[in-house]
């Protein structure tokens, strides 16, 4: 019993450290890039140009219709066979960014469409271009609508980064796997890893609540 308690305490910081140096930066960087991709895809999807919207539609369909693990393997194990060797970390970032790009694109598209048409026209009538109107009038209002679902996307991403362990990225779960293999205490160590993910998600959820409140400032209730 004491040995196990000791193991639990001894492994806690290494696992948390794996989260701080692996999981969290991996999730943050992938999410940031993913949101940019998603915005571009959403705008392409909304464009009147059939080629652009077609490309966006296919992209979203592929991302949502294939497992993230498969996407990760294609990039890390598949691409080297045609001469593109990508290291574990960048491979993970690429796979997660593309994945977020596909899921968040639909969220952003719906959020943009939720802003009343009159807001575009108000932008136009004061002389703004469509780009200016999008940036200054539409996106800030769409952001309010998009924040709750995008926060959920982010929280899912934090958990999905555990998949990076299979391409040997040192992150929270990979650290836990090493400790578990070394000590053979699978139950304790994996439950501990789960606990740390859960703590991270609790912190993120409270941040989500605060962000939503801030964005709600200008809305009547």
């Amino acid at each position: 019993m004491d040995d196990r308690l000791q193991l639990l305490l001894d492994s806690f910081w290494p696992i948390v450290w794996g989260g701080i140096t692996g999981t969290i930066p991996l999730a943050l960087i992938s999410f940031a890039i993913g949101i940019v991709i998603a915005l571009v895809i959403a705008l392409m999807r909304l464009s009147k140009n059939r080629v652009l919207s077609g490309i966006a539609r296919v992209y979203i369909s592929i991302i949502r219709g294939t497992p993230l693990l498969v996407q990760l393997f294609v990039i890390f194990y598949g691409l080297p066979t045609i001469g593109w060797v990508i290291n574990p970390w960048p491979s993970a970032v690429i796979a997660f960014s593309l994945n977020v790009g596909g899921y968040a694109a639909e969220v952003i598209r719906a959020a943009i469409l939720s802003v009343p048409k009159g807001q575009w026209e108000a932008g136009y009538t004061i002389g703004m271009s469509s780009t200016q109107t999008l940036r200054r009038i539409i996106l800030p209002q769409a952001a309010r609508v998009a924040v709750p679902p995008l926060s959920n996307t982010f929280i899912s991403l934090v958990k999905d980064t555990s998949l990076a362990s299979v391409i040997l990225v040192t992150e929270l779960f990979r650290v836990a796997q090493n400790i578990a293999a070394f000590s053979s205490e699978f139950l304790i160590v994996y439950m501990e890893a789960g606990l740390v993910y859960w703590l991270i998600c609790l912190v993120l959820s409270s941040g989500q609540g605060r962000l939503e409140k801030r964005l709600d400032r200008y809305v009547a209730h």
């Binding site: 009343p116 108000a122 200008y218």
Partner: peptide, 9 residues
């Protein structure tokens, strides 16, 4: 506009 279309944000 009839519905004023002020920018709510």
């Amino acid at each position: 506009f009839q519905q004023h279309n002020l920018f709510p944000h």
